[in-house]
Nucleic acid binder design. Sequence first.
DNA 1: ATCTTCGATATTCGACGCGTATGGTTGGCT
DNA 2: AGCCAACCATACGCGTCGAATATCGAAGAT
Lengths: 312, 312
Amino acid sequence: MELRHLRYFVAVAEELNFTRAAERLGIGQPPLSLQIRQLEEELGTQLFRRKARGVELTPAGKLLLEEARIILRQVEQAETGVRRRARGETGRVILGSGGATYFHPLIPAIIREFSVRYPDVVLHPQASSTALLMARLHAGQIDAAFVRPSVDDSEGLALHLLVDEPMVMVVPKHHPLGTKSSAPLRSFTNEPFILYARELNPDYHDRVIAACRDAGFEPRLGPQAPQILPVIPMVAAGLGVSIVPESTRQIRLDGVVYLEIEGKVPRSRISLAHRRDDRSAPVRNLVAIARRVAGGRTGAAGEGWRGDPRAP
Amino acid sequence: MELRHLRYFVAVAEELNFTRAAERLGIGQPPLSLQIRQLEEELGTQLFRRKARGVELTPAGKLLLEEARIILRQVEQAETGVRRRARGETGRVILGSGGATYFHPLIPAIIREFSVRYPDVVLHPQASSTALLMARLHAGQIDAAFVRPSVDDSEGLALHLLVDEPMVMVVPKHHPLGTKSSAPLRSFTNEPFILYARELNPDYHDRVIAACRDAGFEPRLGPQAPQILPVIPMVAAGLGVSIVPESTRQIRLDGVVYLEIEGKVPRSRISLAHRRDDRSAPVRNLVAIARRVAGGRTGAAGEGWRGDPRAP
DNA sequence: ATCTTCGATATTCGACGCGTATGGTTGGCT
DNA sequence: AGCCAACCATACGCGTCGAATATCGAAGAT
């Protein structure tokens, strides 16, 4: 049996007239008669009772009409379903977010935009550390992730630069610098410097150290934080000072003060990472939307997420 | 899209190898490749990712695999469903029963046998009077009925004789005849004779009267009963005497006594009636089973349902 | 580097679905 | 009663499409 048989059968069953059904199908009446006859022979039973004026359905024909309609509808739904899946309009994206990237307004904006454009793609957000996310990406456990990457192209992963934001100093409220709104980085000489654990993101760690050396001092290492985010409450607790991406200023924790860095400003990038060989349409769409929402800010020397307080 | 595409697709998706799938389908590999390509073009997307060693499903392919399996299963079920319906193994029969026919053991035996043989045919039993059942048959409200018919072939209805049973006399317990086990019909001379209303089954009525005249007397008409069945309690109530089909002896009502008729014994027939133009398979099957269960008793001069107490 | 595996391509053949022409039956109209 | 119109079945030629055979090409495996 082929779908043609069912399509023809439904047409005849609805018209109860071979000639009209054939016209509706855009074929001649004789081939239609033949196809119906074939169907009847294959099923071993009459489907229509041929009367002088048109035809009528036999009980078996009535049953087949119900079934055929269901099948044809299902085929149609399968077609559009597959097409939509291919366009990335349905499906699932497990989306990681690390390094406190979700505090940058661009990230929720991207996610919001994607959800609006692709409401039938189920997003599974997952917050973790950049290093863990990279590993899970490789392992196929997640599909994409917002990260502050160490290298621009780790094996097999594609990275799309979205943000390049300046970092800011963060000190306890009652720190001598607490009344200022900016300071040179070297003000941190001899201050206990809270850092993101090196194992989890060597690049970030090293860039911070390098920034200090650039500013002319060797940071006095204080306690380590497992992620960027916990650095803030640790500073609030008076365990030391640190520098963090400007977007974490969103965390208006009582007890901490953010200062813009005078002089050469270290910067931190946010990229969207996914497997390079992942041709999945939803991920492609996510990347496209991310780049679009990031807009002009995607350049290698991209701006911060707002009025760029960068040094000359 | 045709079912062929789906069948081929599922084979490839299951084997993940065009060559093996083609073997399984009993076709060559090149045509299989072509059909899959056609399907992909129609859907506007790749369904397989061709790798050096075999192929793998794309996300759209995975979705289509699920859908295709469902569709193919549904097509199969539709086929077998239609075949079964055509054989009368599924469906519905509205089955009337009139004239107290259901007290003849053959009737429940037929119904039981039919239910066992065709467990998926839903039987809707309906007890009524013979005349009403005939009308409903004509109107298509019921499909078949056990009746004690007046004529052997009313317009458009086919009748299959199942039973030809003797009638017996029924008298109140304290009637002078109440101690006997048989009597001549003329013992009813001058007794009030309870009869089934003539309008509802003229034939039955007339045959009873004729039997009395044969026996040499004119029955003295007593009260009328709307159906055969209520005759028995009316006799028990002392309203008169009557004759009833032997099978109603099953009703062992306190206060009535049944007597075999000596001499020429009037008889009553049970037939299975259905519309002559009704080719519905379940009805055909019901007729076949009824004739089989009725066995040798179907002859025009068929026996009673047990040891035939017929006059010579 | 060579061989093997496996899918793609090219070409021919055959079957089947479709169109045109025609026949046959039945119900309705005059 | 007879003719006509409606409508399905049959007959036959044509074109398309699906399948088989032969061959190629790419990518792992040894």
